[in-house]
């Protein structure tokens, strides 16, 4: 009986701790968003974060997209050739990239790069009193550190996904025409005939949500960090792990909502 009670109490503590964290993150996000409409605005910091996310993540996102498109073409060709449906390769590549793989893989790459970088930078500022220094210098740390980064992430990731979509389809086209024997014109026609605006738009909506979540979790983890270098390391790890899991979970939820029949 005691053992059962202990287990129940432990489970309760975990659930309460989880709910408390969710509540704290929601309040943190709400405060960051509220600063979007309350001056002063830090346009220079937004621009800096936007370039950091959109421009400097471009190589890793581009490479991921190209290789994913190439692998997708190869794998789908192998599978479809078993029941003479090779003609569907271009359709599968474009749908998979625009709806799922473009936003998810770009999100995961950016989570690794930007989520970790934001958590480390803000975490270091926390443990070296720089965040307290901001408060004593008449500057709201949330407005200065968090809001520009979250806005930049929410706007930059859809742009990266547009690039990922184009390069992913190009990767499939490259393998399709150079290795699998498709005619270039036919492959592209098949791609564009099958693609609907909703496929691309749903991917961009997902990207905006993922960009918000990645930057939110990076800033949150850094803001809450403590305990010196080890604390900053923990914040970095938790930012990447939390945003990666959230990307995958939200991908399912958004897919269910956006493509509900």
């Amino acid at each position: 009986m005691d053992r059962t009670l202990d287990l129940t109490a432990a489970l309760g503590r975990v659930v309460i701790g989880f709910l408390r964290s969710v509540g704290a993150i929601a309040i943190f996000a709400a405060e960051a968003i509220s600063h979007l409409v309350r001056p002063p605005f830090h346009g220079r910091l937004f621009l800096k974060a936007f370039i950091e996310i959109a421009w400097f993540s471009l190589p890793v996102v581009a490479l991921t997209a190209v290789f994913t498109g190439m692998v997708l073409a190869l794998q789908s060709y192998t599978g479809f050739s078993r029941f003479n449906a090779e003609g569907a390769v271009a359709n599968v590549v474009v749908l998979s990239i625009t709806r799922e793989l473009g936003p998810v893989l770009a999100g995961l790459m950016v989570a690794g790069r930007i989520g970790a970088a934001f958590a480390a930078e803000i975490g270091t500022m926390r443990v070296t009193d720089q965040i307290d220094a901001l408060s004593t210098l008449s500057t709201n740390p949330m407005k200065y550190l968090v809001t520009p980064r979250i806005l930049a992430g929410t706007l930059a990731l859809p742009l990266l996904v547009v690039v990922a979509d184009i390069l992913g389809v190009m990767g499939g086209w490259l393998i399709g025409t150079q290795q699998l024997g498709f005619a270039s014109g036919a492959y592209l026609k098949s791609t564009f005939d099958f693609l609907h605006a909703a496929d691309v738009i749903s991917g961009l909506i997902k990207a905006a949500v993922f960009g918000f979540v990645i930057t939110l979790m990076g800033c949150w983890a850094g803001y809450q960090s403590g305990g010196g270098a080890q604390g900053v390391g923990r914040a970095t790890t938790s930012a990447v792990v939390a945003s990666s899991i959230l990307i995958l979970a939200l991908d399912y939820i958004l897919t269910a909502i956006l493509f509900a029949r």
Partner: peptide, 20 residues
């Protein structure tokens, strides 16, 4: 409170200068 903070200066133990 913000107006009060405008009249306050602070030197932190480790400087707390902004690296960036």
């Amino acid at each position: 409170r913000e107006a009060l903070n405008d009249r306050i200066g602070m030197l932190f133990q480790n400087g707390a200068l902004f690296d960036s």
